[in-house]
Amino acid sequence: MNNLTIKKYVSVKSDALRINGEIALANGSSADFGEFMKHIYHFYKVSYLKFFKMDALSKLGFIASKVLLIDDDSSRFEPEEKAIVVANRSSSLNTDVKYNQSISEIPSPAVFVYTLPNILQGEISIHHNMKGENAFFVQEKPDVPFLVNYVNILFKTTRTKKVIAGWIEVDVNNFYQAFLMDVEESDNNSLIANFDIDLIQNQLFTE
């Protein structure tokens, strides 16, 4: 197995969308979460009406993955060779609370279907035709050594040739943060950064 490399990475926080550490779209008007997600959606001319039906966690994961893979030729790999490994702190609590509140009247089926965090991976997998490993972890804080180790094992022991890996968090107070990396074996043409614990933990993730 060749060394693993980060081909591209994307972060979304309340102040901006960043690609490879550089601001690609600032949230200049400090729009709320929904408005900022919609702004990114229109800015990148995404056409996927189901986006508007998603809960906050899935919207954040979907939009981060869409920007991450927007120029990627996904047909280079079989669907079974493309995996997603994501973690967060609050699971789907933001939506769970909304669903719980709706129970006092008539529960909403459209809210209920998002009361699991890994639904966001389903949305990404369907859109990008990814059928490989699909793992979601709930952690107190981002555990980069765990993530890097898990992804390395995937490449070594399975058919995996591409992994979307990172952190997608939306808490009950609507604080949100997405950080996704596109990880592949190095071909020396598209190296952004080595898939290295210290680099991700101390630099990329905090940008």
């Binding site: 039906k53 009247e105 008539i106 529960p107 909403s108 089926p109 459209a110 279907v113």
Partner: peptide
């Protein structure tokens, strides 16, 4: 199908 369920809820509500 989820939209169908939402329409059922709408009719009831």
């Amino acid at each position: 199908s989820i939209d169908a369920l939402e329409i059922i809820v709408l009719l009831q509500k």
